[in-house]
Design a protein around this nucleic acid. Sequence first.
RNA 1: GGAGCCGUGGUGUAGUUGGUUAACACGCCGGCCUGUCACGCCGGAGAUCGCGGGUUCGAGUCCCGUCGGCUCCGCCA
Length: 623
Amino acid sequence: MDVRRDGRSGGFRHGCTVFGRKRKGAHYAMTTWKRTHTCGEINAALSDETVVVNGWVNRRRDLGGLIFVDLRDRWGVVQVVFSPEVFSAEEFAAAETLRSEFVVSVEGIVAQRPEGQVNPAMATGEVEIYARRLCILSQAQTPPFHLDRPLDVDETLRLKYRYLDLRRSDLQRALRIRHETVQYVRDFLNQNQFLEIETPMLTKSTPEGARDYLVPSRVHKGKFFALPQSPQMFKQLLMIGGFERYYQIVRCFRDEDLRADRQPEFTQVDLEMSFVDADDVMNLMEQMMRGLMKQILDVDVPDPFPKMDYHEAMNRFGSDRPDTRFGMELRDLTEQLAASEFKVFSSTAAKGGVIKGINAKGCGAEYSRREIDSLVEKAVGWGAKGLVWMNIADEIKSPTAKFLNSDEIDSVVQSLEGEKGDLLLLVADTFETACDVLGRMRLFLAETLNAVPQNRYDLLWVVDWPLLEWDGDSKRYAAAHHPFTAPKDEDVELLGSRPGEVRAKAYDLVLNGVELGGGSVRINNTKLQEQMFRTLGFSAAAAREQFGFFLDAFQYGTPPHAGIALGLDRMIMLLAGQASIRDVMAFPKTASAVDLMVDAPNAISKAQWDDLGLTSAAKERKR
RNA sequence: GGAGCCGUGGUGUAGUUGGUUAACACGCCGGCCUGUCACGCCGGAGAUCGCGGGUUCGAGUCCCGUCGGCUCCGCCA
């Protein structure tokens, strides 16, 4: 480390090294390094005023006899000029030691920049601070990656030095949006008579759902707490407890594999209301989201939000969280192709399956045979038995065409509004598979074709979800939402006979194809709750063991209640225009659930193992 | 659990079919420079090519394994 990074002699005042010209009278003493203004608020109105700013050296331009430093704090960047006209030679030398990320205090005089020197790219570009005194509060090593230009750095490095990454403007912005969002949500719910109430982090492991993060108990060796996957039961108990309106901005934990929009710990806006129905919850959330979108993005979203039932979402978009920002909707072609000579179509239809198609606009002309083949491969990878394609050129090019008569081809082209240059893609399968595969194809093509409009925010509700879904592995029904979700009144009687057809009083909020969150009306009737557990394959004893306290609580007067939980991280990801929730969290983990900065999880000492009464079956890994 | 992509000075990348001194930009260090704002000019230092093994006369390059990151599938009531 050379002399410049070791600090150097100079006046030492108030815990910092001060360089500056001695001046007569009251002006001399830099009585404090404390700021009078933030960098971002320096403007022409402060011309000729003496200010003190604190911050980091963003960039330094040393012209030899004149040094410019862009000083950065949370509020902005301002240009500081060090000139020998103000500094002595010795003091000027101190300014020459400044490097990126040094933390300094500068006292100086605000001045309009000279003619022709205004920087319109800078918010404070009309002015600069003529430094009169410099105080180096902290020197800095050269950071391991650039902080002052668009991001182009390996994420491993960013995560290891997260505290440096956080200085970058887009993370500063994202976390500010996060704060504003949380403030808005709190304010809104407070005004609507909600009480913020905390629930335990150390709680009970329950079956179903995600894997729990477990915390061993020292006092009760061999027993474990679980970190909450969500405060679901607690919030319902708060309704039984008479609070009527509860909310919490709460951390949730799920030990499952990660994605760009999934972290092991994440934050929910969790709320629950008594004496309400589904529409009350949805209306309130619409109001909240509308205000939030207006405040954060100055975007107006429709009133009311569109509602789409689950079946329609699957049927038209092939997804339970449809991205409605673009068309390319799925069409059902079963009727016109059921009697086809082509066995794939006719037998699928005969077995109760469907034939569905989408129009990849313009792809017929664009795509090579090889690229089309790769689409087929994708479709098969997603679970389709195959993908029928028709390339509309001067004539229809398709390996399947010879099995179809011209009426059938015409009707397919017509249904999909095919024009010359288009590529039509068809899947014949069960309803679920055909919709799912084409839904994925739709998203893939839209992204590839850049067909997704930006700066558009499509919010909608997906309602009337199936209450239960068949789990092929365990050969039983599982709760599609969670086991406390109420079935629709008109479907209750199906619970015993055809559980798969029962629809739930559940609703999911979807924004631009991302599931922001979901909720439901809860069961508030013990008999129905017990029937639900039976349907889910819980014996009476098992239900008692796992949920006894909950079933007991229901015996003492349970109000009708409903609620919702919104994924705060995803919401902010979309509001901030980021592609990953890691970019809206201060300290996220990698895709393998590791914190590279603190190096967690880590090994624990022998004494800790012993204290907890635990031994590890995992083999020691070489470090 | 599975698949794909990536890993080369501090950072971002280049590196033909294996071949001699691993290239470029930024950053860093030194020098010069009084109106820059991606300051400029001159010079310099800096790389066990993620790690281990193999093939070969010879590996950044080919093969196998492994570690790490990202994305996706499964999973995520």
